[in-house]
Design a protein around this nucleic acid. Sequence first.
DNA 1: TGACGTCGAAACGCAACCGTTGCGTCGTCG
DNA 2: CGACGACGCAACGGTTGCGTTTCGACGTCA
Lengths: 193, 193
Amino acid sequence: MLRGDITAAIRNAVMNELAEVGYGRLSIEAVARRAGVGKTAVYRRWSNKLEMVLEIVSGVAERSVPMPDTGSFATDLQLTMFIVSKALQHRIASQIIPDLMAEAARNPKIAETLHRALRTHQTAVGETIVGQAVARGELPKGTDPGIAVDLMIGPLYWHLAVTRTPIDEDYLEKMANAVTAALKAAPAGPPAP
Amino acid sequence: MLRGDITAAIRNAVMNELAEVGYGRLSIEAVARRAGVGKTAVYRRWSNKLEMVLEIVSGVAERSVPMPDTGSFATDLQLTMFIVSKALQHRIASQIIPDLMAEAARNPKIAETLHRALRTHQTAVGETIVGQAVARGELPKGTDPGIAVDLMIGPLYWHLAVTRTPIDEDYLEKMANAVTAALKAAPAGPPAP
DNA sequence: TGACGTCGAAACGCAACCGTTGCGTCGTCG
DNA sequence: CGACGACGCAACGGTTGCGTTTCGACGTCA
């Protein structure tokens, strides 16, 4: 039962509608309209706007992120930042992600789903890379993985999702170098002048 | 004409409503209800939801940010990060800012207003601090102000507005040290092993 | 061939909000 | 005192979306 092509059309419509109008203004009527489908077909699959969005979005988010292990922290880092920057510049993702982030601030279910996706698929990558680098002796032993992740992802997210200006290879390289330098100096006190 | 206390009540209601339900679901009826005011009073002041929100929000954002000049980049930086972190942990601001950021991605007027506020009141601070530090010789001459701002604000924004876990003094100090180290090493190529 | 279940379309009653209007009250200015 | 204007309140007609229901068409399996 439940034709697969129709389910796919709805999933697709939800993602696009989400990107265009955001979660707050997303309506099931509009989704059905966009998918070329009756409302009946939607309600037969999900009972809620919330349930529908969560299921579809986390389905997409589950598509795994490659875990780099090139043998060098610098290249691991640059590769990771490259992947994240690609994701954050994706036409649909770049609209949906900040929107759901904001929505998560007031809807616990969204927060939970989003943070799980984030943790398993982004933060974990960062923590692994840092762990490998520490094991290799490239980073000091006490390196704080939390700060490391913030340093790796924060500037990218800020630049791409907030100020929304595109970045080039040069930017990525400079930033990766800066982050590497930051982490190598991390556990020390105030840097010597 | 136009009683000031009522205008203030509406402004206040808009900020709170914005924090609770977000721009997308904000309704003028709810604002008036919350302010204890007739819809008439609202429409007499602004003609649009958009116009109203923009005027009120940019009014709030205009409250200027202090420009630190302590004579040392490290303290300037830490002070700035402290201020930004306070702002991003404010109950209302922490809800409204990400919401409007997301909304800006699809509404050019919001984007314009928000980016102007951002540029004049945050980015400018960062660029000034970096400029001073370069003039003092604390940072290398070619230091890229754009990257510097991303490094200073990005991790804070990511941590506070996205992952939404609180931070302490220790975190701030570690992060400030890391950022300083990053910027001192910035214009160089791949760091020596 | 017939039974079953999904499909699109359309309509249902209900609720919320839009932006506007008319009404009667109240405070202020002249 | 009288005119004026902002105020609240309530109602307007119109739109949009909710979640449900009914209908006939179609496809699939037995």
